Simulated scan of single mutants.
Amino acid sequence: MFSTLEMDLRPGSGLGMFVIGTSLWTVLDILRGAQHFFPQVDLKYDPDSPTTPIILHLRPHLDLLFTGYQQRLHTISVRKLRDPHPPLAMAYKKAILSSSEEVLRRVGVSRMFGPTYPGDDLRYPGVSFSFEEDGRGETLKNPVSLPDDRQQEVKRVIISQKSLDGEQRDALDEVTECPVMAGELSQAILKIHEGVTLYFYPTGSEPIQILLGSSTAQDLMCDLGPPVRTHYKEDDRMTIHMSGPEADTDGDYFYNYQQHGIDFLISGSTHTVKKIVVHSNVPGTPLFQRYKRCPWEIQGRPEDDEDESPPRKRFYERVEEIQHFIAPGEAPPSMILNRTDDEDGLRLPSSTTRLFGYDGIILEATESGQAVTVMLF
């Protein structure tokens, strides 16, 4: 026997526990705690591009569409309203719209939401109601009108952000800034040999600067709050590749700010930041969903003192372009890293990555050329 899934409809804002503008990382974290309602989650994405939209299919009722760049919830599609596995009860302003006993029809929508413009679907700001299960519109509709259109059964409900101009939002548009984003990272500007400048929502908030060799663990605690996780550095295998004498790393530890997609390696002796690691949260890679996508940009040198917009390369650009930006000319030899070596039985489509080392920065990229992490040191 399934428990009824009770969800309140909020046009332009969300449905139940799902809020428009929430990050993919946060939604998947929520779903881990709701496995009794959503035991199976299918994630659909384009393995060749880090910036195409991602769809979470929560059987049998929900499809959640996330934007390609920000990875934020853009559209919620509700279907199979009367499927009993589990039964769904959808309410609006505390009145039941649809349930296993209550069939949602055209006349019911009109009574609840009022008049709207003519068309195959009933469209209101932030929500629309479709009478086609697959949403393909009149191309598959029977040209013969129903005897009583008022009794047409609603097959899909679509919730999305309200558009400022009243037009329907495109599925490829990014989500505009909204309250659920407050306190989250909007931009991370990386400067080689210097550090990172972090910008947060709401837009206009004072940025935070983290400097290599200068910012301390206490600074991080004051500026970013306590990390989600702290652990001591135990893997020193990369030190074998150092050209000089191996540095003392005893006692070094990481502050993991997974909610921002950033790690900081802190010296065990000076307690200053030694390394900064940012993560792109690319689906199909071993680190996917361990970190929220960090919207990082690598900033180059300004052309002169008056240059207010120095050149940058961003997380979604091909690693070949980023390499040429960092050091024009032939790319350095790469090292192969398989992050699943320590995970017996784990198989992923992009488990093997390549490490490209430069003075002050290391790029980790998939075989298809997507940058999954960047490390400053």
Rank of each mutant, 00 (worst) to 15 (best):
M335Y: 10
E102D: 09
A217V: 03
L348S: 05
K191W: 01
S128W: 13
G68R: 02
R301F: 03
A95W: 08
S215Q: 07
Q40R: 09
D342N: 13
S205M: 10
E101F: 09
V319R: 08
R105A: 10
G21K: 04
R111V: 01
V277Y: 00
V107R: 13
P125I: 06
Q289W: 14
A182F: 06
L9Y: 05
V103N: 02
N142Y: 12
P39E: 01
H260Q: 06
L146R: 15
P333L: 08
D165P: 00
Y291M: 04
G16A: 05
T272V: 13
E297T: 04
I276L: 08
K275V: 04
H85K: 14
A188C: 09
Y199Q: 00
R318G: 04
Y117D: 02
D263Y: 00
G16L: 11
T272F: 02
S23M: 07
L88S: 00
S3R: 15
L224E: 03
A331I: 06
L348R: 06
D223Y: 14
F2Y: 14
L190A: 03
G195I: 10
T22E: 14
M375H: 06
R156Y: 06
S77G: 04
H74V: 00
E306V: 11
V175K: 01
L122I: 05
S309Q: 06
I298Y: 05
E343N: 11
V273T: 00
L104H: 10
L31W: 10
G204N: 07
T352P: 01
F2M: 06
I55Q: 12
E132F: 06
Q209N: 14
S100V: 11
G204H: 10
F129M: 03
E367A: 15
P179D: 11
V157R: 04
I54A: 00
L24C: 02
P53H: 08
Q40F: 05
